[in-house]
């Protein structure tokens, strides 16, 4: 991006956080209502793309958790696999999900292995799609004149 867009630059900083918070809301909401890991991951990718538009793909990649889309998505898949493992303790099949509640006095905190799985999906989608989107943006940022495709006959 040759001319730095000042407004985009300034707005991107707070907006990055806001978009990520929104993605977390969508993620947690998915427990009982429309939402969930996949959509939340897509929302998170928009934050990365926003950062890439303002500061370049390399900076956006550095801002990802673990600083690498590959590691991020691998951690996501790993979480998904791990969420299926506690079933082993109860002699159930792999990926049998467990629910429980932790009493907090005034209310109770509902926990489940499904949430772990959903977080895994979230990280995996974020990592994989940010990887695609950033490499597309990267390819788009270096258009030298002689690299244009030749006109077809």
């Amino acid at each position: 991006m040759n001319p730095r867009l000042v407004i985009l630059d300034v707005v991107a900083r707070p907006l990055y956080v806001v978009v990520l918070l929104a993605s977390l809301v969508v993620l947690l909401r998915g427990h009982n209502e429309p939402g969930g890991g996949f959509i939340a991951g897509l929302v998170a990718v928009t934050a990365s793309v926003l950062w890439a538009l303002a500061h370049g793909p390399a900076a956006a990649e550095a801002r990802l958790p673990f600083r690498s889309p590959l590691i991020l998505s691998a951690v996501g898949v790993a979480l998904g696999v791990v969420s299926g493992l506690p079933a082993l303790l109860f002699g159930d099949a792999f990926l049998t999900h467990l629910w429980g509640a932790i009493p907090l006095g005034f209310t109770e905190l509902k926990v489940s292995t499904v949430l772990v799985f959903d977080v895994g999906v979230y990280l995996c989608v974020w990592g994989a799609l940010a990887g695609y989107a950033l490499s597309l943006l990267e390819a788009d940022l270096t258009p030298a004149d002689d690299e244009r495709p030749e006109p077809r006959r």
Partner: peptide, 10 residues
């Protein structure tokens, strides 16, 4: 001759 089976997520 026996088959191994698993039904994911029970």
């Amino acid at each position: 001759g026996e088959t191994l089976a698993v039904a994911f997520g029970s």
